[in-house]
Design a binder for these strands. Sequence first.
DNA 1: CTCCAATAGTGCGATATCGTACTAATTTAA
DNA 2: TTAAATTAGTACGATATCGCACTATTGGAG
Lengths: 149, 149
Amino acid sequence: MKPEHVTNEVYRFFTEVGIINQLISTKLEAFLPGRMTATQFGILGHLVRRPEGETPLQLSNAFQVPKTSMTHMLSSLESHALITLEANPNDKRSKIARSTPRGAEFLQACMDRMSTALGPVMSELGPEPFHETLPNLTLIREALDSERD
Amino acid sequence: MKPEHVTNEVYRFFTEVGIINQLISTKLEAFLPGRMTATQFGILGHLVRRPEGETPLQLSNAFQVPKTSMTHMLSSLESHALITLEANPNDKRSKIARSTPRGAEFLQACMDRMSTALGPVMSELGPEPFHETLPNLTLIREALDSERD
DNA sequence: CTCCAATAGTGCGATATCGTACTAATTTAA
DNA sequence: TTAAATTAGTACGATATCGCACTATTGGAG
C-alpha cells in the first residue's frame, strides 16, 4: 500500500465532488427564481416526499447546514408560499415545516426543466456512471455523517 | 428502461454529492482560520501544484465560481500572505496568482490535520469506495463542464 | 415539586457570495 | 490604422450564510 497515493486519491475525490456540486448548483440556480438556492430547492424536495413534514432541526441535520441558516432558508421558502411553518403540537419550542401544493407544483416544474436542460449530458453519459457510483456515495456519506460530533 | 427510475437515480446522485460536499467542507472549515472557505483552500492547493501560477479567470473556470467571487477569495488569500498577486507580463489587464512558501506550508499543515481527523472514517471505509468512484466522477464532471455555455 | 441542564428556534452582526455595471487593455475588422 | 467588439478584473450593492448569544420550553435528578 502507498498511503500517499491513497490520500491523494481521497483528496481528488473530494475535489471532484466539490466541483460537480458547484456545476450542478449553478445550473439549477439558473432555473430558480431570484436568489433561491440549490439547497433550498433540495429542502423543498425533501418536504414534498414527506407529507407529514419535518422540524427545522431535522432538516438542518439532513442537509448539514447550521440551524441559523435553516431558519433563514425556511422563512424564504415560506415567503414564496412553497412551504408552511406551523407550531409543533408535541413541543412548543418547535415547528413543523410542510410543503404546500404550490410547492409541489413548483418542484415538479423545475425538475422538468432541469431534466430537459440535462438531456444532452445524460444521453452522452448514459445512466451507468450514476448508477454505479451511487452506492459508494451513500456509503461515504453515511460514514462521514455518523463520524460527526 | 424506466426513465423515471433513471431520473430518480440521477437526482439522488446529485443529492448525495451535495451532502458529502457539505459534510466535508464543514469538517475542513473547522480547521481553517477565521472564515476561510473550503473553496479558498482548494484554490490554494491548486496553486501549490502549479508553481507557474494561474490567472484569476483560469481559477474561476476551474472552480466554477463567478469572477467576482474569485476576486474576493484571492484578495483574502493574499491578505493572509498565502498567495501573491502579480501583474501578468503578457496581458496588462490580467494578473497571476501564485502560492507563497507560507501558503504551501499552511496547506500541508491543514492536510495533515485533516488526514488525522478523517483517520477513523478512512479505516472504516478503506480506499476502495474512493478509488472505484473517482473515474466516474471525473467523467461526469468533464461532461457537465463541457456542456456549459 | 423544584431546579437545572439540555434543547428548539431566532435576533443580531460580521463576513461571503455574486449579479450588474464599469474601466482598461486587447483583438478584430474594415 | 483606426473603430468596434471582446475580454480581464473590480467597485458596489443586495442578499445569503453562519457564529454567538439569547429566550422559551422540556426533561430529568433530587
